[in-house]
């Protein structure tokens, strides 16, 4: 299973980023062999709109089954849901590794829908 963590850096030691759509990178862990890949999301930093939708496509294209981020808005959730990706939220201000720990321990809640409003509502 592949799990994507939103991050501002490019390794497990990098800070976990609470924003989904406008995080710099996704750190993707494959728990079958503990391999790590980095999915670029920098194109979204300056997106006028729809960053969450584009980020959701980026992780879907990377073939992930789960996303761990701080929050998830309605459009991002709808897109992730359509791709069959589960969304977990994490309050951590630590590293991606800390968030991974919490995920493995089953401490992170899974979202049934968006947990924040869209920017236009």
């Amino acid at each position: 299973m592949k799990i994507a963590f939103s991050s501002s850096g490019d390794s497990l030691e990098s800070p976990f980023e609470s924003r989904f759509g406008r995080c710099r990178k996704f750190i993707v862990l494959n728990d079958a062999d503990d391999s790590v890949e980095v999915v670029d999301n920098t194109q979204n930093l300056n997106a006028a709109q729809g960053a969450g939708i584009q980020a959701a496509q980026n992780v879907a294209n990377a073939g992930v089954q789960c996303v761990v981020s701080g929050h998830c808005g309605p459009k991002a959730f709808m897109t992730l849901d359509a791709a069959g990706i589960k969304v977990y939220t994490c309050e951590s201000r630590g590293s991606v590794a800390d968030a991974l720990d919490a995920f493995k321990k089953g401490e992170l809640p899974q979202l049934a829908g968006a947990d924040v409003n869209g920017h236009w509502q």
Partner: peptide, 9 residues
């Protein structure tokens, strides 16, 4: 404008 998302499925 990211108004369309394509997810393969």
């Amino acid at each position: 404008f990211n108004a369309i998302a394509s997810l393969g499925v």
